[in-house]
Design a protein around this nucleic acid. Sequence first.
DNA 1: TAATAATCGAGACGGTACGTCGCGTCTTCTG
DNA 2: CAGAAGACGCGACGTACCGTCTCGATTATTA
Lengths: 220, 220, 220, 220
Amino acid sequence: MSLQDGGTQDPRDEGQPPAPASAEPGPARRGRPRSEAVEQAIFDAAAGLLDEGVPLADLSVERIARTAGVGKATIYRRWAGKEELFVDLVRSVEPPDPVLPGTSVRDDLVALLESLRQRGLAKRSSAVLHRVFSQMQGYPKLWDAYQNTVIEPRRKLGLDAVRRGMEQGEIRDDLDVEFVNDLLTGPLLLRTVIRPGATLDPDLAERVVDAVMEGLRPRA
Amino acid sequence: MSLQDGGTQDPRDEGQPPAPASAEPGPARRGRPRSEAVEQAIFDAAAGLLDEGVPLADLSVERIARTAGVGKATIYRRWAGKEELFVDLVRSVEPPDPVLPGTSVRDDLVALLESLRQRGLAKRSSAVLHRVFSQMQGYPKLWDAYQNTVIEPRRKLGLDAVRRGMEQGEIRDDLDVEFVNDLLTGPLLLRTVIRPGATLDPDLAERVVDAVMEGLRPRA
Amino acid sequence: MSLQDGGTQDPRDEGQPPAPASAEPGPARRGRPRSEAVEQAIFDAAAGLLDEGVPLADLSVERIARTAGVGKATIYRRWAGKEELFVDLVRSVEPPDPVLPGTSVRDDLVALLESLRQRGLAKRSSAVLHRVFSQMQGYPKLWDAYQNTVIEPRRKLGLDAVRRGMEQGEIRDDLDVEFVNDLLTGPLLLRTVIRPGATLDPDLAERVVDAVMEGLRPRA
Amino acid sequence: MSLQDGGTQDPRDEGQPPAPASAEPGPARRGRPRSEAVEQAIFDAAAGLLDEGVPLADLSVERIARTAGVGKATIYRRWAGKEELFVDLVRSVEPPDPVLPGTSVRDDLVALLESLRQRGLAKRSSAVLHRVFSQMQGYPKLWDAYQNTVIEPRRKLGLDAVRRGMEQGEIRDDLDVEFVNDLLTGPLLLRTVIRPGATLDPDLAERVVDAVMEGLRPRA
DNA sequence: TAATAATCGAGACGGTACGTCGCGTCTTCTG
DNA sequence: CAGAAGACGCGACGTACCGTCTCGATTATTA
């Protein structure tokens, strides 16, 4: 679950949850149902092309259809354009929200930053992720969907943790909550999004939280 | 002047300084010289379209030429494609490198972060900058040129300042220089690049430096 | 009865009389029987669209099915394509072969030409006929079926009449029978098929026969 | 040249005579001029495909472009659609209007009918002509253009000849001019257009004129 | 003053992709 | 089983840009 409520709200039926899981079977959709195998073939074709090094801009619907052995209309029946397709492509690979240990605010913050590091690592091993993410800003709907469904919920988690830390006396409470959150997440986003070549050592999350907590002043 | 050495290294003559300013006039290029007015008309047309809200992806060379009242070949004579054109467009608006006061390392770092904030503000007032920057990652050559000619030099300034701080005892020296630099610049880049809607208060640079220096632990 | 033996000889069961009307029910075709109402709905939809001015080339099976409120497969279950459908559509409106009075060869020829005139008139009052006929040549199977089952039988009637006239001394016998028949029918087909805007006065058949019989030389 | 004034009156510049042959050079058309070789390649491709037996309905613009090694836009730049292209294709093969000898009305009529016979013969030797003509009625614009620029002018010639014959006493003047003309041309059009398999003996035109002149009554 | 040469706007050119429509076949559920 | 609905692979539609290529018409420099 990540991007599904994001951008797509067109007549195409993508975006609605697959089934409300309730008892009533609904109005019993008529006609031949959409093939799930076809859906997968499209994803596979798109991912395959990205893996081969095809830039996002050259990834035409025509080419995906050709590679997937699928009619163009079959793609347009599901998505309004390639941007909407990418939204779902990203959704299918984005890891779930992190689980906070709750032992201490400091540990919760480390867990949050660790999930950012993990995603950064994933982007390096997967050409798909790397390419789509690095070019996402050029596709406003994709970007918005990602912001709303992935970034913002995690930011909320961070804000909560910081607020909790202030209440419990772990974090000084004379600073703005958002500001503090930015101090913590900024360094990791810098390394994963803006400077995608930077190292992401296993203890990075921990080091960032601790360093920001302690400050840069030399110890007495 | 910033990006000129970045991407363009094609047969087109852009990138070479317009004239070596030396005495010898060279082989005295024959034929009709390129019109500078045409150059400006192209920039104006591209900027105007961006200001009107045209997304970068829809900004075709064809359309720029039409808007500028210029032949397509006239554009291709100067740049290899629209990406190269954007490189020069950005170059023409990027502010110069910041000047460090040198009074203290803390003040130098504030000055560096303030220049980041200034650029963030500029991106909001100028639709051109905003659009080009937010979509730059989709255009690798443009992105590389920007990284190499703008980001990296300033990063170097930051690294130098941090190193100086460590030597002079202003900053604890048990941390990696790059790591410390990321702690400082990350929050600002987060607000200007990744979350372009965030506030950029005038004292933001100062607050970030001081907070990171002091740490988040409650004061005794 | 007119076109049913023409083109259609495909696996689809059209062409066979709808039921042998005999006592034995045969192998008793299982399952739900085909609805005759559906058949009529398809004809009505096609005719309606033609009446509205839709050109034959734009009369897609898809559109007929949509208009008739019928599944496409239901149409393809009966006909191999739209051409075959048209064959049956024309069959349903083509008038029967003319009956010759037999009083004289001249009267028989007038009766034959009069039937041509009648069909010409019918094409003008019925948009269906007009459009299908005028574009029939672009659909070889339809054209062949029409030639074989409508045109040729009537031509035979004309040839017989002419031959009879030669034997009985009503028509000079130094001319080819086919040639003479063409002299008589040509003018009417010209006005009905080739120049569909020409007048078709009630006495046209008579006038043609008489004029061709008498010749164009001024009377003494 | 025959059809040039026919259907095409769209922004595409086809239809205008290539040059008024006058001294004034006109407004000096700007930009690269259309290539005549390309035009010929398109005609050749279309004719070639027709010769190979491709039905008119299967002759897509896409296919013609592919065969001619030409971009689709290059075709659409000249013609609004394939129908308009066919108009020009037919124009390029239609023989010129017949020249009447003027020795007698009877000879003029023979010459007119002979030109009809010649066109009928041409349709048999040329697959292009045959296919286009036989399917022309399915393409209203093509049909209208042909009627207006080829058929009607020749019909006028026939009407004039008949009228002259009546004035000079060669033809009885108690019949309608149009009616008489139809008696003469009908038989030939029947054989060439409606029944394209009929024989077209060299003396057919002569025989028709003489037979219609003399009438079918047995000679005394 | 003429010849030469690179520029300019304009737009044709072979391509590729767009997003839509119809083809004829197929697969599902409802009667 | 027939029937409505509609998904499916395919291929054509007519349009928009791509980057290259001619055109005639300017402007410079060089001879």
